[in-house]
Simulated scan of single mutants.
Amino acid sequence: MTVEKTKAKRPYHHGALREAMLEGAERILAREGLEGLTLRAAAREAGASHAAPKNHFDNVAGLLSELAAVGFRRFERSLLDAAAGIDAPEARLAALGRAYVAFATSYPGLFLLMFRSERLDLSRPTLFEAMNAAQSVLRDAVGAELAPDGTIPTASAARLVAAWSLVHGYAMLQIDGRLDKIVGNLSDGGDATTLLGAILDAGGGQLRAS
């Protein structure tokens, strides 16, 4: 599992407290996990007073939700960059699958937070919009277009869920170390990325657009 990358601590300047706290919150998340992430801890990490966060985040759920939104926007950029210039549907899906797992294993704490809905305020516009934008990348790749009323045909939903389940499940297995034994016994000396590539290049039995 790749160690989560974070920026070096730097003091905030006037008008940039929100960004400084989000950067600080991500550092805490990588260093101490979700248990250590509180409003006071994020303020302290940003070099601000413990009362300062109230100007930007109502409570810890607000802070976590805004941090998750940062994650989803970063996630979307990673997916789009990976698929840029690839026209063949199956090759595009394979590239998205690799990027999905790469993001998850590069930012495990942030990735896990993004899918901890019980800790997030899904009604916050920034989080809602960021989640939808990221999800639309995969939805578009499998041709699962939403109707104007927001509904989706069962066949399209099945393709979307199959693709999502495969890469999300693989990412979680890798983050949890459940693949270590299998990867360690690969006869050709490959690693977790090699194994994922073999699954995706074969179409995964599920990662096929219509």
Rank of each mutant, 00 (worst) to 15 (best):
T6E: 00
K7W: 12
A8Y: 00
H13L: 09
L17I: 13
R18A: 09
R18Y: 11
E19F: 11
A20H: 06
M21G: 03
G24R: 01
A25F: 04
I28W: 04
A30V: 09
E32S: 15
L37Q: 01
T38V: 08
L39P: 04
R40K: 14
A43D: 07
R44A: 15
A46Y: 00
A46I: 05
A48Q: 01
A52Q: 12
N55S: 14
F57K: 02
F57W: 01
D58N: 05
D58A: 15
N59Q: 04
N59P: 05
V60A: 12
L63Q: 02
L67A: 03
V70I: 08
R73Q: 11
R73S: 07
E76K: 14
A82I: 03
A84F: 10
A84Q: 15
A88H: 12
P89D: 06
E90P: 02
R98C: 11
A99T: 00
F103Q: 02
T105P: 05
S106W: 01
L110A: 05
L112C: 11
M114G: 02
M114W: 04
F115Y: 15
F115C: 08
R116W: 09
S117I: 07
L120T: 02
L122W: 09
A130E: 04
R139L: 05
R139Y: 08
D140N: 13
A141T: 00
V142D: 09
V142L: 11
L146M: 14
P148M: 10
T151A: 13
T151D: 06
P153H: 04
P153W: 04
A158R: 12
L160S: 03
V161D: 13
V161C: 02
A163N: 10
W164V: 13
W164F: 14
S165N: 15
L166D: 00
G169C: 10
M172N: 10
M172H: 06
L173Y: 08
D176E: 14
G177M: 10
N185D: 13
S187K: 12
S187F: 07
D188P: 00
G189F: 06
G190P: 05
D191T: 07
A192R: 12
T193C: 01
T194D: 13
L195P: 00
A198Q: 11
L200V: 04
A202Y: 12
G204N: 08
G204H: 02
Q206L: 15
Q206A: 15
L207W: 06
A209C: 07
S210C: 06
